[in-house]
Design a protein around this nucleic acid. Sequence first.
DNA 1: GAAATAGTGTCTGTGAGACATTATGGG
DNA 2: CCCATAATGTCTCACAGACACTATTTC
Lengths: 227, 227
Amino acid sequence: MTPWTAVNSEGYEAPAALAVDTVVLTVRDGELLALAVRRDDGALALPGGFVGAGERPEATARRKLREKTGLRRSYVEELGAFADPGRDPRGWIPSIAHMALVPPDTVAADPNALWIRARGRRRLAYDHRAILRAAVARMEGKLWWSNIAVGILPGAFTMSEARRVYEAVAGLRYDGATFARDLKGTGLVVATGARRSEGRGRPASLYRFALRTPAWGAGHRKRVSAT
Amino acid sequence: MTPWTAVNSEGYEAPAALAVDTVVLTVRDGELLALAVRRDDGALALPGGFVGAGERPEATARRKLREKTGLRRSYVEELGAFADPGRDPRGWIPSIAHMALVPPDTVAADPNALWIRARGRRRLAYDHRAILRAAVARMEGKLWWSNIAVGILPGAFTMSEARRVYEAVAGLRYDGATFARDLKGTGLVVATGARRSEGRGRPASLYRFALRTPAWGAGHRKRVSAT
DNA sequence: GAAATAGTGTCTGTGAGACATTATGGG
DNA sequence: CCCATAATGTCTCACAGACACTATTTC
């Protein structure tokens, strides 16, 4: 295959296209999962596509996310640019990497899409393993300082549900009592007043995030260790 | 002026170019400063340029930094992509924004370059004010968790010098004794054993960063308030 | 009532912030 | 000698982590 090329109206070589690749993350059964797409040649890649002329890259990310999962209002944030020469064998194609967070019950609408372990060692096409690693690192770093988990947790959730998500993302175990105290202390969540019974045991109070848009909690001590 | 355009070999519209814009930061007289370049039309802009085919964007940033300041080995990190349509009137030109940190004695080699207040309200061309704001926010957020200040402080520095830089970046005042204790506690700096007399007062011990490459300190409490 | 899960109360170690005190130089 | 700055020591408050104990539900 001959690589794609482009020349601009000034006569200089230009990028052949601008791509967006998205790390779609969720938590299921205590594990951090990422969405991958099996290409025609069998290789796995992150969901992505080309930015259209006049389109914002985040809009491209949301468009592709909708195609693969059907979701319309997910948390999406930019990870950074991946533009090293040779990253895409098709030619000079910089990619703006994004990270999206989706609820655990999200089904892969695309038949070629599947969930893989975000911390696994699966091979991915292009430089997509580096992008995946960047997303996991970003997620770990921001978890306690923002309402980033809003994208994974449902509208109302129990402290135990939230704890399992936080544990999966951070790769740590938290004490239930301490976790609830600290998460409430961030000011990012509020009690709904409702309760939910989950099989055996005392019903749990339900909480929701005070904001469903990006926000930061008050200054709290960095979480470095856990039970 | 007619906008630049580009079409790739597949027949689709492509970006007219890939740009890099760099926020060059330093601290002088207790103030956080950024390098700006006066264009022919009189407007101020961040130093930047186009990424060459086969060039890594960070290499472009370093190349332009060298042209404007003569510096070769500065701390440079990526801020993110700025690619909204219409951000550049010349056409579809995404920009990979970078942040560079340079010592206070850096002179602007380019006669059109000047230092402006990073937190000031000067108008900048394109979307460069947004890029500048992103750089200041990144700097504030990372200061205590990394040796990012390595780019601004000289090879050997006193705790007072370091404190003035940290204060300018964070926009806060720190207690001298507490600052020294905490900075030493990060494990990012080591004492050289030498001392330096600065006019009146007891001579100060000199320190240097243990690493001059990007690194993170141990988990420490977030600095949210100060004296 | 037993088991399971939710939630409360409390103790402790650590570290940030503040500040008093001592040390050591220059004018 | 006086002043200025550096460095040390220490007190206190807040909070993370741990864990004992109570509460409320299902089986």
